[in-house]
Computed example of a mutant assay.
Amino acid sequence: MPILELNNVAKTYHTRFNANAVNALTDISLSVEAGEYVAIMGESGSGKSTLLNLIAALDKPTAGSINLNGTELSTIPENQSAKFRREHLGFVFQDFNLLDTFNVKDNIVLPLVLSKTPVVEMEKRVKKLAPQLGLADKLEKFPYELSGGQQQRVAAARALITDPELLLADEPTGALDSHTADELLKLFAELNAEGQTILMVTHSAVAASHAQRVLFIRDGRLFHQLYRGDLTQDEMLIKISDTMTAMLAKQDENNQSDRPSSAAATQKEAE
């Protein structure tokens, strides 16, 4: 059963005084099943970050609908949107966004504090989650005392402490070296195997190859999607790389067709 459904979603931005319109997304329809692990890929400016912001209820679509587990996101009042995100979504960003004046434990439970969760429940959740993410012996340390990989694990713990219906990851390996990135992706795979639904935006074909399905966005539209099925990670990586190459080739082809010929351009200049 889909936990997330997008139907004919579009997002248009207007420049100052509405002189020009920029179509960031056009007619996006997709669904994510409960327990699925989906990656979204695309070049810079393709619309993937805009799409993530809409799904995260950080922005509203110009047209279409986004439904998260029975709730139409556009109907959430502005003063309730932060509360909705805390209770239903988890976020892992490229920048860890940890508070240096809080220790690891306090950073992890911050969403629960904001939700006024009883202390006993907070302790129970931390006790269960910290060992799972390799943080049991780091709870009293501060972020600046941790490695980048450990900080990202703290960020992941903070995202998971509320038991979110959907975990959103925005370039989660972007600030990590290859070894640490691989550790985080293995962690995501373990979480997904336990039933956590994950939607990840990434530039990295290696990161995307860990997902069960990869959606490709080009110029604000869905270009293609790949299902992992029985493919190994290496086989999936090859398919992703081939698709990205095809996307770039199509982009170059479109750019060439949009460009006037040199003879036509010379004639236009002469006129």
Rank of each mutant, 00 (worst) to 15 (best):
S262T: 06
A157W: 01
D242L: 11
Y144D: 13
A189P: 00
S31G: 05
L231P: 00
N7K: 15
L73F: 01
G134D: 03
I198W: 01
L54R: 01
V9H: 05
R153S: 05
R228W: 05
Q196Y: 03
Q225E: 15
Q196V: 12
I40K: 05
T202Y: 01
M200I: 10
L199N: 04
N8C: 11
Q196M: 12
L226R: 08
P118R: 12
K83G: 01
V120M: 13
M244R: 06
A155R: 06
E271P: 00
A21D: 12
G195K: 12
K105T: 01
Q152P: 00
K128I: 13
T245N: 12
A34H: 12
N20L: 14
T180K: 03
L184T: 08
P172I: 11
G148S: 08
A130V: 03
N7Y: 00
L199M: 13
I66A: 02
V113T: 13
L73E: 05
G90T: 02
T101R: 11
S31H: 14
E5W: 02
S49N: 09
A169C: 14
T162W: 02
N103P: 05
E87D: 06
K138Q: 13
A264F: 11
L160T: 08
S115I: 08
N20I: 15
Q267G: 01
T12H: 13
L4R: 08
L146T: 12
V92L: 14
T202K: 03
A21T: 12
H179E: 13
A19L: 14
A34E: 13
I55P: 03
Q80C: 04
K268A: 15
L52Q: 04
R125E: 08
Q151A: 07
T117K: 07
L248N: 09
A208E: 07
E36G: 05
E145V: 05
V109W: 07
L187V: 09
E140T: 12
V32I: 14
A21H: 09
E123I: 02
L191R: 09
L167H: 05
N103R: 10
G42R: 03
H14C: 10
L248A: 12
G195T: 09
L68F: 03
A155C: 05
Q94I: 07
L129F: 03
F93W: 10
D106I: 08
M122G: 00
L185E: 09
M236Q: 07
L4T: 03
E78Y: 04
N67Q: 09
N254Q: 15
A130E: 02
L68K: 04
L199G: 05
T12M: 06
D177A: 09
K60Y: 04
L25W: 06
E235A: 15
Q233D: 02
A205V: 07
E123F: 01
L176G: 01
N67M: 06
L133A: 10
L6F: 01
D234G: 02
K138R: 14
E33N: 12
A270C: 00
V154A: 07
P111R: 10
E36T: 03
I240N: 08
I28H: 05
K105H: 12
G70Q: 12
